[in-house]
Design a protein around this nucleic acid. Structure first.
Length: 340
DNA sequence: TCATTCTTAAACAAAC
DNA sequence: AGTTTGTTTAAGAATG
């Protein structure tokens, strides 16, 4: 069977500059929550997209920028699976349909229910688990644990999925069993690794899944983020090359038409504080890059756009998708670095 | 409609 | 003996 080997169309990843960390310059001057509430309308135009979320932390990390992403990187960069030592940076943040007038606490019964099933196939889950391991090999039990740790859904799911994992390991050519050294008395069974020749295909499937599910309800099923920032406000910043947007939006890897049942209307608000701090000319203003900032306040996640960005909702959605994908994809080289 | 992929369930054997 | 691991078969859903 040619399973796992199907050729998938390459993406058009947006690139970020290498000095990406500088893009986080906003972090220290993060607006205080009160100053960025949509109901407060300060003065300098800044667009926000806001999404509801659980109070869980949104990944504030950075992935080293894929600025130098080459074709090879595109296939080998799996760092977006693993951020800050832990895997998968993006906490799924379910979206709501309306922009609340105030930030009154949302009753518990209105919060997202228990996590739904992740969009990833078992092959992808296994792949991610193995790739996230230091030695790129895991016993079955380790794969279970990784999945449970990263996908709350499986924490509560009945045990049948474990059978599926084993079934997949056995059946898929993508995974190879490595017999353990008899001297190793720790644990049962064998170690499993990703077959190198199937890795690119697995990666493509994974990235495709990542893209395709950013706009639907399966957002709920992204891996959890395991680290929090100190103050509970989390920044994710990506700088993206807008010149790539055309190809992305004209030929998206999957439908990116915003689901208006999920998307929150974009509001333009003005923020004196931010404007004042950022009044200097953005050094990237003419570079073809657009800088996105995410932060989270209470149950809402904000995407802060440049004040003069003339972006329609769909473009913004695409930007967000790709920023997150790239955020996730950021340092694949880190992950693959030991082997190359 | 058909082929393919994926999921799920189940049975069974071997290893621990 | 009970649990875990690994293999295999089968059926059904989803998808292109």
């Amino acid at each position: 069977m040619e399973k796992d080997t199907q050729a998938l169309p390459p993406h058009s990843p947006l690139h970020s500059p290498q000095n990406h960390s500088e893009a986080l310059s906003l972090s220290p001057s993060l607006p205080q929550p009160a100053a960025v509430l949509p109901t407060f309308l300060p003065s300098s135009p800044t667009s926000y997209l806001h999404f509801s979320s659980t109070p869980q932390v949104y990944g504030g990390s950075h992935c080293p920028s894929p600025s130098t992403v080459s074709d090879q990187d595109d296939l080998t960069c799996l760092s977006w699976l693993h951020q800050r030592g832990n895997l998968l940076p993006l906490q799924p943040l379910p979206r709501i349909t309306t922009l609340p007038k105030t930030f009154e606490p949302i009753p518990a019964q209105q919060l997202p229910p228990s996590p739904a099933k992740p969009p990833y196939s078992f092959s992808s889950l296994i792949f991610m688990a193995i790739e996230d391991s230091p030695e790129k090999r895991l016993p079955v039990k380790g794969i279970y644990e990784w999945i449970v740790d990263n996908f709350p859904y499986y924490r509560e799911a009945s045990g049948g999925w474990r059978n599926s994992v084993r079934h997949n390991l056995s059946l898929s050519k993508s995974f190879q069993r490595i017999h353990r050294d008899k001297s190793q008395s720790v644990g049962k069974g064998s170690l499993w690794r990703v077959c190198p020749e199937y890795r690119p295909a697995l990666l493509e499937v994974l990235k495709k899944t990542h893209y395709c599910h950013r706009t639907n309800n399966n957002l709920l099923n992204k891996p959890v983020l395991l680290e929090a920032t100190d103050n509970g406000q989390n920044i994710l910043s990506e700088t993206m090359e807008i010149s790539d947007l055309d190809s992305l939006s004209s030929n998206p890897p999957c439908s990116l038409i915003p689901d208006h049942e999920e998307l929150v209307p974009m509001e333009s608000v003005e923020l004196t504080e931010i404007a004042g701090e950022d009044s200097e000319k953005d050094p990237l203003a003419d570079s073809g890059y657009i800088e996105l900032h995410y932060y989270q306040y209470q149950q809402y996640q904000y995407l802060v756009l440049p004040g003069d960005a003339e972006l329609d909702l769909e473009t913004v959605e695409i930007l967000q998708l790709d920023a997150e994908a790239q955020e996730a994809a950021g340092s694949l080289l880190d992950l693959a670095g030991g082997n190359h």
